[in-house]
């Protein structure tokens, strides 16, 4: 009942509680900083999954770079390295096995985030209840959780994507030598890293959505609960 709005709409502006966006950012940032270790664990699964995604895509970009040189020797070394290349293929595509592995790892990562964030909500029920007693609306709470997840997402996904790319290059260096850097199609590599980062942010937000809704719906009277 607490979250339903009357059909008559909002009360006049002077009777509306507010939380400026800048202040929400500040609170979300502070809350992450104070719970740094906790945030690190929540973000860890995201970092790993995104780095895997980035590793696979950047690896393919590098392989495509080699193919684009048209050098048959390079082609041979790619086949030796395990790429499925037909006689006429001019590009390496993500093969189904890779794709499934990536999707699976991303799904596991989302489940991990949901789990960790639900725990965080349970741990913070008193804080959330108190905020609501002080006048916070459901959407303030929702916004705070989304902002926190967004920040975790950006940082975690960027670190993961960069890490994955570094591993892909290290892998290339070991297999094909210094030529990796000459042949690598940089714009495509950058695009892959950016895409992985964006995917990571999205996953972080998707993962926090349900826990944040649970938090937002929490009744203010929860703050009064004594037993814990």
């Amino acid at each position: 009942m607490d979250s339903t709005h009357t059909p008559t709409g909002r009360p006049p502006a002077h009777r509306l509680v507010v939380l400026p966006f800048r202040k929400s950012l500040e609170i979300a940032y502070q809350s992450l900083k104070v719970r740094f270790f906790r945030s690190l664990i929540t973000t860890a699964s995201l970092v790993l999954a995104v780095s895997f995604l980035s590793f696979v895509n950047v690896g393919n970009d590098i392989a495509n770079g080699f193919l684009a040189t048209g050098d048959p020797e390079r082609r041979q070394s790619l086949i030796q390295a395990g790429y499925d290349l037909g006689e006429t293929d001019t590009r390496v595509e993500e093969n189904p096995k890779q794709r499934w592995l990536v999707i699976l790892s991303l799904m596991v990562c989302v489940v991990g985030i949901v789990n960790a964030q639900l725990m965080a909500v349970t741990e913070r029920f008193r804080e959330i209840g108190t905020m609501k007693c002080l006048g916070a609306l459901d959407r303030f709470v929702l916004r705070l959780f989304l902002l926190e997840a967004g920040m975790q997402g950006i940082v975690g996904a960027a670190v993961g994507a960069a890490g994955g790319a570094v591993f892909a290059f290290a892998n290339g260096l070991l297999r094909f030598g210094a030529a990796t850097f000459q042949a690598a199609p940089w714009p495509e590599v950058l695009a892959s890293v950016a895409a992985a980062t964006a995917a990571g942010c999205l996953l972080s937000l998707v993962g926090v959505l349900y826990p944040a809704l649970v938090a937002a719906k929490m009744a203010p009277v929860e703050a009064m609960r004594v037993e814990q």
């Binding site: 607490d2 979250s3 009360p11 009777r15 108190t130 609501k132 002080l134 006048g135 459901d138």
Partner: peptide, 15 residues
């Protein structure tokens, strides 16, 4: 409604 209750908690009542 939810907005007015929040306003009440914020301005009229201290917990």
């Amino acid at each position: 409604d939810a907005y007015e209750l929040a306003w009440l908690r914020c301005r009229k009542i201290g917990y």
